[in-house]
Simulated assay, not measured.
Amino acid sequence: MMGQINPIALFLVVLIGLGVVGNNATITIAAAVLLLIQQTFLSKYLPLVDKYALQWGIILLTIGVLSPLVSGKTKLPPHLSDYVNVKMMLAMAVGVLVAWIAGRGIPLMGGQPVLVTGLLIGTILGVAFLGGVPVGPLIAAGLLSFLVDKI
């Protein structure tokens, strides 16, 4: 007699399929790792993953962004005047804006977890079929927070 199909495991398998079809290793690997954790003795560590993975991911992403500076591949502008131009000022302003928007998303994701499903599905579709990257849920949640506040 077959047991019930675990809907979360099925969802992860679908994500793995979307990752393969969309040629996106990030989605494929993430879903496969979570499926492996869920379906093995490692499932006892899911609360830790749930609690800290976002923070670990942001740390790894920040390391990835800073590493070209540290390795010398990218140089900091040598003079203060190099920071004072339209492109650099726009880059800094957009960086501040996106960080602020993403910061608004964290409380929304915690306060209305049902919306996380929609954000994740949208992000996954964007990653799998539009060549996006999976940092979208935080920014999407931040943008959604502006809309949800009005509803």
Rank of each mutant, 00 (worst) to 15 (best):
V14S: 01
G95R: 02
L108R: 02
A30I: 08
G132I: 00
G3N: 00
V94P: 00
I139T: 10
W100L: 13
I8M: 08
T28R: 10
K87D: 15
K73Y: 13
N24F: 03
V148E: 02
S145N: 08
P7T: 05
I59E: 08
L108M: 05
A93C: 12
V20W: 13
I106A: 04
I16P: 01
P134F: 00
P107T: 07
L130P: 01
S81E: 13
L144R: 01
L18M: 15
M1W: 05
T40Y: 01
L97D: 03
Q55N: 14
I16N: 08
G3K: 14
Q55T: 15
S43H: 08
L69Q: 05
V135A: 14
N6V: 06
L34Y: 08
H79P: 01
G22R: 10
Q55F: 13
S43K: 11
W56S: 11
T28F: 14
M88T: 15
K75W: 10
V65L: 15
M2Q: 14
L80V: 15
V14R: 04
L119R: 05
G142D: 07
V114P: 05
F146H: 03
I63M: 09
I59G: 13
G17S: 09
K44V: 15
F129V: 06
L66T: 06
S43D: 08
F129S: 00
G19S: 08
I27L: 09
A9V: 12
P134S: 03
V33E: 05
G95Y: 00
S145H: 03
L120K: 02
V94C: 02
V148M: 10
V49D: 07
L61I: 14
T62L: 13
T40F: 03
L42E: 04
G142Y: 05
V65C: 13
P47T: 04
V133E: 10
P107Q: 04
M88C: 07
V135D: 06
L76S: 05
L147H: 05
L18Q: 02
T117R: 07
L18V: 12
L61K: 09
T62K: 12
G72F: 07
G122N: 10
L108H: 00
V114T: 14
T26E: 11
F129I: 07
L120S: 03
V148Q: 08
V148R: 14
A99Q: 02
V116R: 06
T28N: 06
L36K: 07
T123P: 01
V94S: 05
G22S: 04
A53D: 06
G64F: 07
S145Y: 05
A128C: 03
T28G: 12
A140P: 03
I58R: 09
M88Q: 15
I16H: 11
G131R: 04
A91W: 12
V98I: 07
I63F: 14
N24M: 03
L115G: 11
V84L: 15
V133G: 14
G3T: 11
S145Q: 03
I63S: 11
L35H: 02
L60C: 10
L10W: 12
L36A: 14
L69V: 07
D149H: 12
A93Q: 10
G111Y: 09
K44S: 14
L54P: 06
P77F: 04
V96F: 09
A30L: 09
L48I: 11
P113E: 12
A30F: 08
T62A: 15
G95T: 04
Q112I: 13
D82I: 08
G64N: 10
K87W: 13
L119D: 01
L69C: 07
V33G: 09
V14E: 04
T123H: 08
L60W: 09
L12W: 04
M89H: 08
